[in-house]
């Protein structure tokens, strides 16, 4: 274990213990997560691998406060999240978490700029500041010239860049990405991974799900899931 990754020297972003989540498929309950422990320190870039159905997306959704665990405890930036009500969870997602999806999930009728402004809008940031911040971050991902394009006018790689800009615009404590290169060709995927690595180098904490070992190798730590359990974790 590297010294800079101890709790003493870096704050803990994610501190989850014994997370359980099951879904009912008719009569049979499916244990998507069966006692997962996860500690993520600030500045870490952890990747999650595992077979299809092993619980990767489920884990990400709970860490991202998109769903509640059935059991276990979860502290995000030192704050208990598992008991929060819906409104507080929305605020946590808005302020502390940035999501990057496999399918980009841009609003189709909104321009890049409007898409990037969306989280700031829900956060109550006034219009002028919102615009400035969104334009600045679009510039940072190299898409200043595409600010007024709609998703249908952008390439896949450009769409994902807009989505990354949208995830970063609130300056979140944690960036979650579920197969961000899954819908891209390998060249474009590599350039997106370069961007994510750059984002990591700027000090962001990242948890990234992937099926691609090359992508997984770019992280500073790799977690392997199987049947809702952690099979391997190179970081702890």
């Amino acid at each position: 274990m590297l010294p800079q990754e101890t709790p003493g020297s870096r704050p803990l972003v994610v501190d989850a213990e014994n997370l359980g989540k099951s879904y009912r498929m008719g009569e049979v309950p499916v244990n998507a997560l069966a006692g997962v422990n996860l500690k993520l320190f600030q500045g870490e870039f952890a990747t999650v691998m595992g077979a299809s159905g092993s619980g990767k997306s489920t884990l990400l959704s709970i860490v991202g406060c998109l769903d509640r665990p059935d059991s276990g405890s979860y502290l995000l930036m030192g704050k208990r999240v598992d008991g929060m009500d819906d409104r507080d969870l929305a605020r946590v997602r808005n302020r502390n978490i940035g999501f990057i999806f496999q399918t980009f999930n841009l609003l189709p009728r909104a321009t890049s700029l409007q898409n990037v402004e969306l989280p700031l809008m829900y956060g109550g940031v006034p219009g002028k500041e919102r615009r400035q911040r969104a334009l600045a971050i679009l510039d940072r991902v190299g898409l200043a010239s595409r600010a007024h394009h709609r998703p249908s006018q952008l390439s896949g790689g450009e769409r994902q860049r807009v989505a990354i800009a949208r995830a970063l615009v609130t300056d979140p404590s944690l960036l979650l990405a579920d197969e961000p290169t899954g819908n891209l060709d390998s060249v474009t995927g590599r350039s997106i991974m370069d961007l994510i690595r750059q984002v990591h180098n700027e000090g962001n904490t990242i948890l990234l799900v992937t099926h691609d070992p090359l992508v997984a190798a770019m992280g500073s730590r790799m977690i392997r899931l199987g049947d809702g359990r952690v099979l391997e974790d190179t970081g702890s």
């Binding site: 991202g64 929305a90 997602r93 808005n94 302020r95 399918t103 999930n105 969306l118 829900y122």
Partner: peptide, 16 residues
């Protein structure tokens, strides 16, 4: 539905 999910992920409350 996906749009709703996306908006919620970005911080929309139920009220929104």
């Amino acid at each position: 539905t996906t749009e709703i999910g996306t908006r919620r992920a970005l911080g929309a409350t139920r009220g929104n």
